Amino acid sequence: MLEVTVGELRRHLPEYLGRAESGDEFLVTRRGRVVARLTAAPDARAAAKERLAALRTRARVGDVVTSIDATWNAAE
């Protein structure tokens, strides 16, 4: 992980934001101490798609023709 000082980050903020969006992560330091981490925000849509893909591997489609009013046994 790369380190950048607060002053350097202020001077070149658009550049560092672009690099963070591309996947780079930065530790922001002040007087030699880490005060923050700059990274891209997680993509909520991509995370939801990954969860759905994982659920698809475990889903089982059964009888989709039977009426809603029909009785059924969940153990089958």
Score class of each variant (00 low, 15 high):
L2G: 00
L2I: 02
L2D: 02
V4S: 06
V4H: 10
V6S: 06
G7Y: 09
E8C: 00
R10C: 08
R11D: 12
P14K: 10
E15K: 14
E15Q: 15
E15W: 13
E15P: 01
Y16K: 12
Y16F: 15
Y16V: 11
L17T: 13
R19H: 14
R19S: 08
A20C: 08
A20S: 13
A20R: 13
E21I: 09
S22V: 02
G23T: 14
G23H: 14
D24Q: 12
R31C: 01
G32M: 06
R33S: 05
R33Q: 08
R33M: 04
A36I: 07
R37P: 08
R37D: 10
R37S: 15
T39H: 15
A41M: 10
P42W: 08
D43T: 04
R45F: 08
A48F: 09
A48K: 07
E50D: 14
E50C: 04
R51G: 02
L52N: 08
A53I: 09
A53S: 15
A54D: 04
R56A: 15
V61C: 00
G62S: 00
V64K: 07
V64F: 06
V64M: 06
T66Q: 09
T66V: 03
T66K: 06
S67N: 06
S67D: 08
I68Y: 06
D69Y: 03
A70W: 05
T71C: 00
T71I: 00
T71E: 08
T71W: 06
T71D: 07
W72S: 04
W72F: 05
N73C: 01
N73R: 11
A74T: 00
A74M: 00
A75R: 03
A75G: 01
